[in-house]
Amino acid sequence: MTTFFDLVARRQSDRAFDPDRPVEKEKIQQILETVRLAPSACNSQPWHFIVVDDPETKNKLADAVASKILGINHFSKQAPVHIVVVEEKPNLSAGFGAWLKDKNFAHIDVGIAAAHLVLAAEDEGLGSCIMGWFDEDKVRKLLGIPSGKRVLLDVVLGYSTQPDRKKVRKELDKIVSWNRYE
């Protein structure tokens, strides 16, 4: 059994996938069940997930996610699964709290859910990458998302062909202080 620390240490943003190896539905279901259990402010669960695994739709989605000008996210066409995260309206308690405290709890909650998603994918032996750069209008139109909804993320999943990389992170003493900000 892998420890949680080992799982987190192993997980990376993958940008190379085996396009000929589909992801088993059972694995996707397990990942989604893990995401369903993610915490949210006032149990609001302000999210909706669209699983895109139809090859034709997935390729059109990958075109909306890639940028020819900036040369980014072209790898997304290799990934056999995209999970698009749509922001939903929070419940009354979370919405009021967000207004009162001037914090977007829904975005925080979606971030927590996305972390659950990619860690669950890693636990299932899948690579993943969270992407926030895309043509939101094209994604909305392609997937039939109502115009009043925000598309926050596209998370790609698949069997990674990318070698493991050493994580480069700030030292702990650069990001943590005790008892006061320093």
Rank of each mutant, 00 (worst) to 15 (best):
G125D: 04
V23M: 09
Q29V: 08
Q30T: 13
K166L: 09
L37G: 02
F49L: 15
H116A: 14
Q45H: 14
S13P: 01
I108W: 11
V156T: 06
I145G: 13
L119M: 09
V151N: 03
H48E: 15
D123Q: 14
A106K: 06
D137T: 13
D135R: 02
H82E: 02
E33A: 10
W133M: 08
L142C: 08
Q29M: 05
S128A: 06
K138D: 12
K60L: 13
F75G: 01
T2G: 00
L70H: 02
D53L: 05
D63R: 14
P80K: 11
E87N: 03
E88P: 00
A115D: 12
E24V: 10
A41Q: 01
A120L: 03
R150P: 00
W47F: 05
V84I: 10
D18E: 07
H107A: 08
L172K: 02
L142Q: 05
D54W: 07
S93Y: 15
D154C: 14
T3A: 02
G111M: 06
E171W: 00
A106P: 00
P46D: 00
N104V: 07
A120W: 04
P55M: 11
E33Q: 11
T161P: 02
H48G: 06
I69E: 13
F4C: 00
A38M: 04
K166Y: 01
V110R: 11
K149E: 05
E136G: 10
W47R: 02
A62G: 14
I112V: 14
V168S: 15
K89L: 14
D54I: 05
L70T: 05
A94R: 06
A9N: 02
L61M: 10
V23Q: 09
H116P: 08
G144Q: 08
E122V: 06
L153V: 03
F4R: 00
G144N: 07
F105L: 08
M1H: 03
V51Y: 15
L32D: 01
V65Y: 15
L172R: 00
D54S: 12
F49C: 04
V155R: 05
K27N: 13
L100T: 07
K58C: 07
E24L: 12
K89M: 12
V52S: 11
L7H: 00
L157H: 10
L126S: 03
N73G: 09
D20Y: 01
G144W: 12
Y181I: 13
V86Y: 03
A62S: 14
D154Q: 08
V51K: 14
G71V: 07
